[in-house]
Design a protein around this nucleic acid. Sequence first.
DNA 1: TATGAATGAGACTTCATTCAT
DNA 2: GATGAATGAAGTCTCATTCAT
Lengths: 225, 225, 225, 225
Amino acid sequence: MSSVESRGPRGADSRGTDSPRVNKRKAILDAAFTVFARRGYAQAGVQEIADEAGVAKPTVYNHLTDKETLFRYAVEASADVLLAELLAAVEHLRDRADDQDPRAALTELAVRLARICCGERASALRRLTYAEASHFTDLADGVQERTARRPLAALADRLARLSLSGQLRPCDPEQAAGHFLALLTGPLELQSRRGTRPVPDAGLRATAEAAVDVFLRAYAYGGEP
Amino acid sequence: MSSVESRGPRGADSRGTDSPRVNKRKAILDAAFTVFARRGYAQAGVQEIADEAGVAKPTVYNHLTDKETLFRYAVEASADVLLAELLAAVEHLRDRADDQDPRAALTELAVRLARICCGERASALRRLTYAEASHFTDLADGVQERTARRPLAALADRLARLSLSGQLRPCDPEQAAGHFLALLTGPLELQSRRGTRPVPDAGLRATAEAAVDVFLRAYAYGGEP
Amino acid sequence: MSSVESRGPRGADSRGTDSPRVNKRKAILDAAFTVFARRGYAQAGVQEIADEAGVAKPTVYNHLTDKETLFRYAVEASADVLLAELLAAVEHLRDRADDQDPRAALTELAVRLARICCGERASALRRLTYAEASHFTDLADGVQERTARRPLAALADRLARLSLSGQLRPCDPEQAAGHFLALLTGPLELQSRRGTRPVPDAGLRATAEAAVDVFLRAYAYGGEP
Amino acid sequence: MSSVESRGPRGADSRGTDSPRVNKRKAILDAAFTVFARRGYAQAGVQEIADEAGVAKPTVYNHLTDKETLFRYAVEASADVLLAELLAAVEHLRDRADDQDPRAALTELAVRLARICCGERASALRRLTYAEASHFTDLADGVQERTARRPLAALADRLARLSLSGQLRPCDPEQAAGHFLALLTGPLELQSRRGTRPVPDAGLRATAEAAVDVFLRAYAYGGEP
DNA sequence: TATGAATGAGACTTCATTCAT
DNA sequence: GATGAATGAAGTCTCATTCAT
């Protein structure tokens, strides 16, 4: 879970961008996300976070003023990572823009997305932001922006190209993207019981294929077989 | 806000069995759901619940042992109500089983469902169960059962009939129902910002129509226009 | 130090004015004053106060919202007691209004006042209000009102009578009272090292007599011997 | 507010040769006094003192071991300054030793003293030492020595001269000095509300004149008009 | 039965103080 | 010598829960 390579205090780091200060901050944010994910916002104790990060409690407060601040930054950092993963997955579509039949490419995309959405991070993020949606409205909005709206927009771009190139029928690309993602993630939430259970790779693939199948029936030209 | 049909104090209900004891219990559960929905599980105080219910704190403990128990019963009661509403909406389909074209009926269903899903109760329930999914696994499962799986199964029944009667192509009705619901609720979550913002009736209807349109393109016979 | 007769919980009290609730509150306020006097405002811990009062920490918070509130009420209660003592001492002068020579009466008064001013309560109150004069301005003002201004006014009344009856020369009675008290308490502060050391009864009496002597030399008619 | 000539620990530097080391120490002590005066001992933070002095926190610890040590030195330095001011005021009397009537000289002295006693430094010092009288007994004693006993002794010297030269009646000069100061400062404490409010110059002068008047009535030969 | 009052445990936060640079 | 960063200890306050009426 904890992802940051916290080299010792004065760490001579490989790529040179991290100061030890920044490293410790990242370690704390990572630990915080882990603990918040485990317990929820209110039940998580700052002590537990400090322990998880391997620092003393006041150190946490030195780097991040508040429990609230801690939460915000931890969640946002995680959302950023997720956003990057999602965008990367969508970008793969670009490389396969000239396949004659988009089914294979879309299926690959769907599987990638499914894996991300069922992952630890995405599940935790979903739980946390649903939970605190009313108290941290802006935060929840920001996360939805990064984990849903922007990936959706990126996908819409790709679909618009497919539409232009005649591989999909003319349509509102935003809406199409929304439907694509809904067809994929909706059933996944059911299978994973809201991220509570792991989804076996087979089920994941089956869901992805079914989603793509319906999507293409609705959005491909003649209404495919 | 107050939801569970709290008939007046000594309420003359259909079958007439309510003792004042039972009434007070309902009042407490209602208050509990309201407060939990407002604050989340951990942030909700038993005192606040007692105040909302108009009783003293120990009275709450007299009726429901624990804060945890209180939560479970409150959530389950609310899930039961939601289940009833959802099933009722699905049942309406039955009455229109012999329309030649299912579009109108499905659209009506979609709109009904959308209204329910965007309502206070459904949003609150979603927030609460996502939040506590890891701590109250069984509870979360039970809620998903009632707010998703069973309505889905009921819808699958209807779709199966439509398929048999030739209004839909042959398909796995469970899967079709899953897709139908996903196409509807996925975009709604985006619009309502996870239930944080109200969705205007127009947007709600547009979303429903788009969902039905895609659904029919994919599941109707020839691939409709 | 602790003065409240905390009869058991349901205590059937002699004079009937105290509810058990009120009793516990008094016990807490007494304990608070004791501890604040011992440690000062900031160094005093609520835990220590609770222990001194023989209750649990939250009970303290149940009765008195804050540490600050606790402080205010404790100090004010103590100031009230002190005010009563001081006024009582001044009232004694009334009974001796027709002595021909006021020296004896004034000396008795001076001794009484000196005893009070050197007592535990007065010293503690002086320390506490000096210390927090800048943070609790209003409180400090209220205390000065009760421990200085009002006793001074009462004394001024008495002196005005003496002046009218020809035992003192015509003068501004407020100013005379101020001088009387200053002549008494100024030297006492020096002797008691700001209330840090006990003042033996002899020194106390000597100081009182010297104060009265100077006072009469300045305020009696012919300038006494 | 600014500085105290506390030459460094061992510093017997004859005149003005402050090393930078000594300068920084002075800056810190000054800042400390300012902050302690503002907040009180316990509420004052070492960080705030460091900020006020324009140095980093560890630097404070480098120069002055402890918060306690810091307090002691800061307070003592300030008391030294005050002592010097008070003694200087008293010394002025010497120059007017041969006035026939001491009233003018004493009044001038009283006004000078009143100004000092109502000043920032004196008020702060009074608050701080009253507050911590029980915890820093020795410190409080030292301060009283410098701000009360020694000025009083110096004044007693002067009064003894006046007595010898027949301008005052025979008396115990220490006691007379005590009464003089009490008549002056007692009423001032009332007017300034324990140093909380500024005293206008007129009130200050009136108080001084009243004090001298009473003093002379009591201590001058025939009992003046 | 319903309640006012009491409590034990634990949460967040701050501060004086010390390393390592 | 001066500083940024880290820490152990402690403090205020809140909360779920239980007596005694």
